[in-house]
Every structure is written in C-alpha cells, then in structure tokens.
Amino acid sequence: MVKEFAFGFKELVIDHKLMAGVMGYENGQLPPPFDEYMETALQEAATLNDIRASYLLIDNSRIDKGRKVLYARENEFNIGNAVCNELNGAERFAFYVCTAGKTISDKSVSMLKGEDPVLGYVYDILGSAIAEAAGDKMQLFLKNEVGKAGEKTTNRYSPGYCQWSVGDQHKLFSLFGEAPCGVSLTQSALMQPVKSISGVIGIGKNVEFREYQCSLCFSENCVYRRIRGI
C-alpha cells in the first residue's frame, strides 16, 4: 500500500539551528548578511507547491541477521550491520521517498552556477532541510497510524549511510514502480530532484526509536560529525 502526501512549506517544522550548523555556524545563528539571504530563501520557499512524501508498507518482509540482508518482495537489500541492528525486531517495513521538489532544487543549481552563488548555497541547505522536514512529517503520520494497533517505528535509515550501499536505491525505487513523488534515479543512484531522501523504517511491537548516532556510521567527512563535535 502506497500512502502519498503533498505538504505546504508552512506545515513543516524546519530546523533552523541545524541549517546554520551545516553552514558552519555552530552556535545556530547566521551572521549578516547570511541571515538576510536565509530570510529571502524562506520567503521564496513559502510559495513551494511541490513538496511530496510517500511510503510503501510491505508486510511480507524479513531480516536475515547473519547475512545482514533485508528481504522485501523479490529484493535483497544489503543493509549492513548497523542498520540491521537498528531494525532488529521489525515485523514489517515502510520504504519511503520524500522530496523538497524540483523548484527549489533547480533554483539552487541555477543560482550556484552564476546569478548568486551565496543564495544558491542557501537554497541548497534549505532544500535539504525541507526534504528532511517532509520526512519527519511523513514519519509522524506513520507512527500514529501503526500506533493504533500497538506497533512502534524505528528511526529512518537510508542507502548510502552506515555501510548500506547507495546502489540499493535502484531496488528501493523498483518497489514503487513509477517515479514516487516525481523522484527518479540516475544510473549512479542519484535522486532527481536532488533535494530528496529515501530509505526504510522498521515497524513492530518490539522495535525502538533511537536517535542517530555518528558511531554507527563510517562517513568520516560527514558535516553532522563536525556539528556534533565528533
């Protein structure tokens, strides 16, 4: 079953402090003139009408802990040890795709290429934050839905992180059929629009939601490690 959402920008909870942190300002405050750039981008974002999210619930799926593989339909996802442990106890899974949309993704790219690279960079950061905020809202809906039957959800995990090969994106997208939320994949597993996220959430009575921990992941140059001072 695929559940689809269309979100308005104002419905989303954007993490401003995290955006400032990603840009390098770890106290969460953007100095002038970058605060004004962000204000411009936020005003523009209020008009976005292509923020989308969707998830697909798959009941007949299981994890092989020995092989570190998640089986869903005819696909084998090589999720690696860390994600395998985080999804432990899940009885079914929600695969998801969320996007900040083509508008902000394209705007960022065109600004970065010429007109105003600083504003383009701010759009890039905001686009990422919108995609994550859409993911948060979709995840909250899912949590409430499965909670009615006493089930819980894990955090969400994505190909490309924690030793889960980004190449598995192709298998994930094949579950949905046509481009979910208008998001398609390049041959190298890059999502288009670029400001999109995808992954899986475990569901079950015995799963736990755990905050992300950098110790699970081997990405040494990740910006979130720097923000967290690791």
Partner: peptide
C-alpha cells in the same frame, strides 16, 4: 582552519 565557512568563501569568490 575552520575560521570561515562556505558562505564567506563564496562572498570572497564574488
């Protein structure tokens, strides 16, 4: 040296 960040470098580049 992490004394400035990407936005400041972009301003310098401009």
């Amino acid at each position: 040296e992490n004394k400035v960040f990407v936005p400041q470098v972009l301003m310098s580049a401009k």
